[in-house]
Amino acid sequence: MNGMIGDIVGSARDSLATFGRMMMFLGRLLAATPAAVLRPRLVVHQIYNAGALSLLIIMTCGLFVGMVLALLGYDLLSRVASEDILGAGAALALTKQLGPVLTALLFAGRAGSALASELGLMRATDQLAAMEMMAVDPLRRVALPRFLGGVLAMPLLTAIFIAIAIFGVQLVGVQQVKIDPGSFWSQMRSAVELADIYEGLIKGTVFGIACSLIAVYEGYNAAPTAEGIGRATTRTVVVSSVATLILNFILTAFML
């Protein structure tokens, strides 16, 4: 019993230490951020890697999430004869919750894991050490643009996800189960306020910061072995997902 408590305390302390190191890493990244302005091309390249390459998966998933939301919502709402508010309900759920959260989870799986394994590989093959030896700071040259690319791409990916998902809702709701398009859209418009969209975008940005930071941190500090890279990649996806869901709760509570 005593041992178990000790274990729990120990692992809590370890997590706290990791969190602390991550925050220090974030501090170093932020301190170096002004330097990135001088090298916009590096950041553009990483927006491409994190954003443009995630586009297909984000759009596909957005479409199907929207469509299933419409089916489910219609089934439920038609029982109380309120299928008119399908658009409103789906749009609210998407902008405030599903959009940012699902985008962040997909982002962690697609861009985050790619980032972590790329950086881990660079660590394992001495590329980062080689840069240091060439008097180039790999934190600025490699980690920072990747972090910023992810941070900038996430809100845009979130917006694209939500827009496509609403298209999906509309596709099933209006085209297939024949909800009146007029009431579908007008209900949606009267229900969704600008503040809801801000909430979605703020969440997207915060999740973007968290997921990018975790991916870059794990990859940059990966053990320089094949196993280390694998572990960094797995940890990136797991920790990002958990962090996203926890942050989502905190942000939702704050913005309610």
């Binding site: 660079m122 093959t125 001495d126 590329q127 050490a129 080689a130 030896m133």
Partner: peptide, 8 residues
């Protein structure tokens, strides 16, 4: 470096 450490 041992394996060259070229930037891939």
């Amino acid at each position: 470096f041992q394996n060259g450490a070229l930037l891939t």
